[in-house]
Nucleic acid binder design. Structure first.
Length: 493
DNA sequence: CGACTTTGACCAGCGC
DNA sequence: GCGCTGGTCAAAGTCG
């Protein structure tokens, strides 16, 4: 144990070193850029617009190596002393860049090895007990109950917190889940490395992510880990807020309702659904209307599918996964940071951009993916009376509105009478979607809107890559089979 | 009649 | 220990 802890500390030290190197490099780059900018402003006052362009290019250029950027922007008529200083800085940065690249390559190798080992473990578990889901979380649990733990099998050393709250469950669930979600990033950067086109910014970003993963692995980020590593017996959750007038969002999976309740603080009933795509799939989702804006549907996903996802579900899952990756692993992301601090719980939504955040007031809610941007409005896809979603909500014309006393199911605090609302059958709308009568799945619409956000484009692309890589390990289950989505009820009885 | 939803009951976790 | 709340179960009801 003692040696393990020592090794852990060394790894953390390494992480911090990379972080500090990265920060130093960024600061230096910024300093050099600023310095040059001032000088060029002095020398080229006649062309301020050009300067601005260059400055923009310097700060926003994402496809060039930073060192080359500096080289390109070096003026030729600088005095030799300044040039030599800058040249030294550049050389130093290049050296650091090389070190970082080596780090990334090494990490990629290690990560690939771990993935291969995990695939083997999954295969073994599947052979032993076909009922054991392939999800990391469940495997972790299964392994916990068995004679060997996942870390032991993998041969990796995970520092266990002495706190009784941090049991193997929390370690396995949060960390292994996070590991998978990081995969898309690593894949992207691996490809970038091969192409030798990667820039320092991406490299540094990846190094940062890697460092955070390491620190999460070693419980060195209590602030972040606490969000994910909810109590040991709880799974990570991803909440998706989106405007939708149907009873539920069509995310490509098949769901069976198994309960409904009035939750405290929201008169809208909360519906509980189980995934029925595959028997024994542990994934559940809760669907509830936002109290403030009833056109907003809050869907909370919990668990990991033990089956390949349909195309629509893949896209949706990718989004959620990507949000999880960026939110949990890249706290340097200004967006995630900002909203982690400022985004309020479900009762306030951000109409500007689709955004993901960690609910600061209730970490048990997990990650909140806010798709309530106008672009994500599903309204036009449904023949619902009422021209706008809000007016429709006020008039009680949504298809999701309860049409029976179920609205008061186990209530005690329901204070809105729905009896006067003319309500179309939610089932009929859902069925139309399931049977493909709608022109396109809602998920497509949703993903299209998400794709407009550059941050999400990166995240979603990465997550999709991850899923494809993941699916490659389950060659017997081709992804996106047409048998999915249209058929209801694969089992449950 | 099978599949699915509804809904009352039950249970576990948590705070006081 | 007690009550509240969230989550789940399962019998009854509904639908095609």
């Amino acid at each position: 144990m003692g040696s393990e802890e020592k090794e852990t500390e060394e790894e953390i030290d390494l992480s911090l070193k990379i972080d500090s190197e990265q920060n130093l490099k960024e600061e230096e780059t910024a300093k050099i850029d600023d310095h040059e900018q001032v000088e060029m402003d002095d020398k080229e006052e006649k062309a301020p617009a050009k300067d601005e362009e260059e400055a923009t290019e310097t700060t926003t250029g994402e496809n060039e190596d930073d060192t080359s950027m500096v080289e390109l922007s070096l003026p030729q008529d600088r005095n030799p002393r300044e040039l030599s200083v800058l040249q030294m800085e550049m050389d130093r940065m290049k050296e650091e860049n090389k070190v970082l690249r080596k780090e990334v390559e090494q990490t990629m190798k290690e990560y690939h090895d771990l993935r291969m080992k995990f695939a083997v473990i999954q295969q073994n578990n599947k052979k032993k007990d076909p009922q054991i889901p392939l999800s990391l979380q469940d495997n972790a649990k299964a392994n916990k109950e068995g004679p060997r733990t996942v870390p032991e099998i993998f041969g990796v050393k995970i520092q266990r917190s002495p706190s009784p709250a941090n049991t193997d469950d929390s370690i396995s669930e949060s960390e292994l889940g996070l590991s998978l979600r990081l995969q898309p990033s690593t894949s992207q950067h691996d490809k970038a490395l091969e192409d030798k086109e990667e820039n320092k910014e991406e490299l540094a970003s990846f190094a940062s992510v890697k460092n955070k993963l390491q620190r999460i692995h070693h419980h060195e980020l209590p602030g972040i880990t606490a969000h994910v590593a909810s109590p040991p017996n709880r799974k990570a959750r991803v909440s998706v807020r989106a405007r939708c007038q149907a009873a539920t969002m069509n995310d490509g999976c098949q769901w069976r309702k198994y309960g409904q309740k009035i939750a405290k603080g929201n008169p809208c009933p909360r519906a509980y659904y189980r995934c029925t795509v595959a028997p024994g799939c542990p994934v559940r989702k809760q669907v509830q209307r936002c109290q403030e804006d009833m056109s907003i549907l809050i869907t909370t996903y919990e668990g990991t599918h033990n089956h390949p996802l349909p195309v629509g579900a893949t896209a949706m899952a990718s989004t959620a996964s990507a949000a999880a990756s960026f939110t949990l692993l890249d706290s340097s992301n200004p967006i995630s940071d900002g909203y982690t601090q400022t985004n309020l719980p479900f009762n306030s939504y951000n109409p500007i951009n689709p955004i993901w955040s960690i609910n600061p007031n209730d970490h048990s809610k997990g990650i909140v993916l806010d798709l309530t941007n106008n672009l994500n409005e599903f309204t036009p896809r449904f023949p619902v009376a009422g021209s706008s979603s809000s007016s429709a909500a006020q008039q009680g014309l949504f298809s999701w509105m309860p049409n029976k006393s179920s609205y008061y199911h186990q209530s005690g605090n329901a204070n809105i009478s729905m009896n006067s609302f003319p309500i179309p059958s939610p089932r009929s709308l859902d069925e139309r979607i399931w049977k493909g009568e709608e022109n396109k799945p809602l998920a497509d619409h949703n993903v299209g809107a998400i794709a407009l956000d550059p941050n999400f484009r990166v995240a979603v692309a990465a997550a999709i890559t991850s899923l494809f890589n993941k699916e490659s390990h389950h060659s017997s289950h081709p992804i996106g089979s047409t048998s999915f989505g249209a058929n209801r009820n694969n089992g449950q009885k």
